[in-house]
Design a protein around this nucleic acid. Structure first.
Lengths: 228, 228, 228, 228
DNA sequence: AGTTAATCGAGACGGTACGTCCAGTCTTGGC
DNA sequence: GCCAAGACTGGACGTACCGTCTCGATTAACT
C-alpha cells in the first residue's frame, strides 16, 4: 500500500505540520501533471532543522539558516511549511529529534523503570550536547500546537509511558485498576517540563519525591517511614 | 549600606530579572552626582510590556514597541534590563501580570478548592482577553529562568498552593502527613502548563481525573473505596 | 535550404530580437519530427507583453506575468526569446505597440505637418492610457539595441519621417536639397526622447522652437527674415 | 555661511533626489535633538553607487550591493533615498559621475568645439571603462525625472552647452541672434542619447552631418561641395 | 552659583532575518 | 518535440527590530 513510507505529513495528527500533501516523487499515482514535491529537499530541510536546533537552540534557529544548511531555496521551505515550528512538528513526527532514546524500560518494576527513565530525561534536559533541547522544543510548542502534542508523545515514547503505566497497574499503591494513567503521565511529563523551564534540575531526590507523589511508593523498596 | 556603588546594585531576588535596582528617586542616599533612575519610566515600561504581551503575545513583543508605548527611549530600557524576558520577570514579580486572580481558595475541602482553582486557571489559559497569555509566559520562561520560577510562583499564588496542600494534609487519601506537597504542586502546575502548551484544554473531566491522580479522591464526595 | 535545422534559424532582422524564427505552424514545410512552434502561443505572448507594458510599465513587466496572462508556460517563452526586451523588440516589429497612430501627415506644408505630428507624440508620451509607454520603451531599449532601433523606426513611422523630410526639401530654409535629413530626423526624435526622459513636456511653444532650430522657420507662416 | 559645502540635497532642483534635509553632522545650527545624519555614510553610499554603476551597469546595480560596498546598513539607504535612481540623481548633482570630463571647449570656433565635444561623448558612450555608462543613466532616468534632468545638465556641462552656443551666436549660419539655443542643445543631446540607445555609434561622419543639420556649416572650413 | 556626571527622549547607525517576488532551469505528463 | 504547469535554487527586494551609539536637554549632588 501507499502507506509503506512512514514519513509523509499525510499522516498528520492535525492541521499544523505541513501545507498539504502533493504527490511525492516516487509515491503512488499522481493526479495531475507538472513536477512534484522533491523528497530529497524535504529530508534535507528536516535534517538541517534538527541539527541547527540541537546546535544553536530554537531562538537562533532561522529559516535562512535552515535553507542554507539544507542547500535549498527559502521559497521551497515557505512553499510547504508556514513557520519554523511547523518544520519541527514534522521532525518530531518523523522521530528525527529524539532517535529512540526515550523509550520507557520495562523490567517489571514500574517504580524503578520510571526512575531510570526520568533520570535519562533529566540528563537530556541539560545534557552535554542538545543543551536546552527540551527548552527549545517548549519554545516551539509555544507557537505550534502540534509541536506541543508531539513533544508530549515523543517524551512519553509514543504512548509508551501510558502503556507502561497501564501494564504496571496493581503493582504500586496508586496504580489501581482504574487509575487515571493518562493524567498520571501528563502530571509526570508536566513536572518534567516545569523543571526544564525553571532550570530546577531533576536529581535523584526530586525524581524520588515525584514518584512518591504519583505512584505512592518511595525508592524501590517499601519505605518504612511512609505508609504506602 | 548596599547603596555604595552609584547604581545598578543588588536587590535582585536572583540573577535574571534586571540589571539591578539602582537608587530610585527618593530612595536612600547615593554617593555621587547626577540624576537617579526614573521610577516613572520604570513603571511605564513594565506596564507597557504587560499590555503589549496581553494584546499581541510574546513573539510580537519588541523592545522598540515597549519603548514607544511607554514613551521612553530604547536606551532607557537597555540600561536596566538585558532582554524582554527580564522585563517580564520583573512584571511577574510586581504582580502586574496576574492581578491576584489566582489565589487558591480555602473552604476546608482541598479537593473542591483545587477543582475551583484549576477551573479558573483553565479559563485563563484560553480565556477572553489575555488569549494565550500563559503560553506567552512559557515562551518567555524558555529564555529566562526567573520567568519560569516566577510564573510558577504566580500560578501557585506565591506559594499559596503548597500552603493549601500543607493545610489539607490528612484530609485526602494521598495527602498524608509527610506527603511531598511541593512535588504534588509541581505536578499539578506542570500538568496545567503541558495542557497550555498542547492546547488540550482543561475541562471538568480532565480536572477531575488529574485530582484523582494527585489527591486520590474523585469528585467532591469522599470516595472511600478508591484505595488501590 | 535555410530550413535545414529543425528550428530557430535565421530570419531575424538583427541579432537582438528573438532566438530566431523557427518554422511556425502553418508556415512552410518543416523537415523534422515533433510539433512545431505554436503561432497561437507566440501571438498570445506578444499581446500579453504589450498589454502588460501599457498597464504596468517596463519595470513591472515580468516573464512570469506575461506567461500567466498569455496562458503559456514560462519555458515556452524562454525557448524563443532570451529576455523581456527581446519580446518587446518583436512587438515593435509587428506594430503591436503603436497601432499606426504615428504616421507623419503630408499636407504639403512640412512645418505644419511636423508640428501636428510632434503634438501627437507629445500627447502619447504622457497621454491618458499608455502613461509612460515611451519611457518604458526607452528603458527596454537600454538593454536591447533592436528595441532602440525599432522604437526610432516606430516613431518615425517606419522611415516615413525621413521620407516626409525628403519630400519637403526646398520648402523651408534649412531643408536644402542636400540637407542631412536622417540627422534632422534623429535630432527631432532625440529631442522628443530627451523630453520624455526628463518629463519636460512637449507643448506648442517647445515644438515651435524645436522646428525653428531644425527647419529654420517659425510658426506656419513663411518667415522670410529669419536668416542669421 | 552654511552653503559652503556643495553637497546637501537641500539644493535639490526638484523633489526627487533625497527624502529630506535633516541636519548633517558638522553642519550649522541644528533644530532638534537626537543623532544626526552621518555625512560619512552618505558619501560612502554615493561613491559606492557610482563605482558599481560604472563597473556593472544599472541593471546589475542593487541596493544590497551598494550597502555592502559602502559598509552601510540597507536601512540607512532606504532612510534617505527612495530608490536606486534617486541615489544616482544625487550622484549626478554632486558631479560624482562625470568628473568634469564633459565641459564644452571654447576656442572661438563653435563648430570645431562642438565636434571635439561630441567626439569625447561618443567615446564615453561606448568607451573603455564605463562601458554603457550613458545607457545606464538613461535607464535610471527612465524612472526618475531628476536623473533625466541632471543627465542633460551633466552632459551639457551644467548649462555650458547652451552658454557655448549663446557665445557663438552669429558665427555660424544657423546660430543667429535669436536662435533657440536651448532647443538646439536639446536636439544635440537628444541625438546623442538616441545613438546611445540604438548603439549607432557617433563617428566623425555622423558628428559632421549632425552639426550641418543644427549649425548649418560642415567641417570647420566651408565645404565647397555644399552651400551652407 | 557653577561644575560635573548620570539620566532621559529621540533616533541614526551597522546588521540579521523576515517573508515575497522573480529569474532562469528542470521535470512531469499530455498531446 | 512542443506545450502548460509548476517545483527547484538562488538572489534581491523593502521592512522590522536588534543592540549600540550619539545628540541636546535635564537634573541632582558636589564643589
Amino acid at each position: 500500500m501507499v502507506a509503506a513510507q512512514p514519513s509523509r505529513p499525510s499522516g498528520s495528527v492535525s492541521e499544523g505540520a505541513g501545507r498539504g500533501t502533493p504527490p511525492v516523487r516516487g509515491a503512488g499515482q499522481s493526479s495531475r501533471s507538472g513536477p512534484v514535491r522533491s523528497e530529497a529537499a524535504r529530508q534535507a530541510i528536516l535534517i538541517a532543522a534538527v541539527e541547527l536546533l540541537i546546535e544553536r537552540g530554537y531562538d537562533s534557529l532561522t529559516i535562512e539558516g535552515i535553507a542554507a544548511r539544507a542547500g535549498v531555496g527559502k521559497q521551497t521551505i515557505y512553499r510547504w511549511w508556514k513557520s519554523k515550528s511547523a518544520i519541527l512538528a514534522e521532525c518530531l513526527l518523523e522521530g528525527l529529534v529524539f532517535p529512540g532514546k526515550l523509550s520507557v524500560p520495562d523490567t517489571g518494576d514500574v517504580r524503578a523503570d520510571l526512575a531510570t527513565w526520568l533520570a535519562a530525561i533529566g540528563e537530556l534536559i541539560e545534557g552535554e550536547h542538545g543543551e536546552g533541547l527540551v527548552r527549545s522544543l517548549i519554545a516551539a510548542a509555544t507557537d505550534n500546537a502540534d509541536v506541543g502534542r508531539r513533544l508530549r508523545d515523543s517524551i512519553s515514547g509514543s504512548g509508551a509511558l501510558s502503556a507502561r503505566l497501564h501494564a504496571g497497574r496493581g503493582t504500586t499503591p496508586l496504580l489501581g485498576d482504574d487509575a487515571p494513567v493518562d493524567e498520571i503521565a501528563d502530571a509526570l511529563i508536566g513536572a518534567v517540563l516545569l523543571r526544564a523551564i525553571s532550570r530546577a534540575g531533576l536529581d535523584r531526590a526530586a525524581v524520588d519525591r515525584l514518584l512518591v507523589a504519583l505512584l505512592g511508593v518511595p525508592e524501590s523498596a517499601p519505605d518504612p517511614g511512609r505508609g504506602a
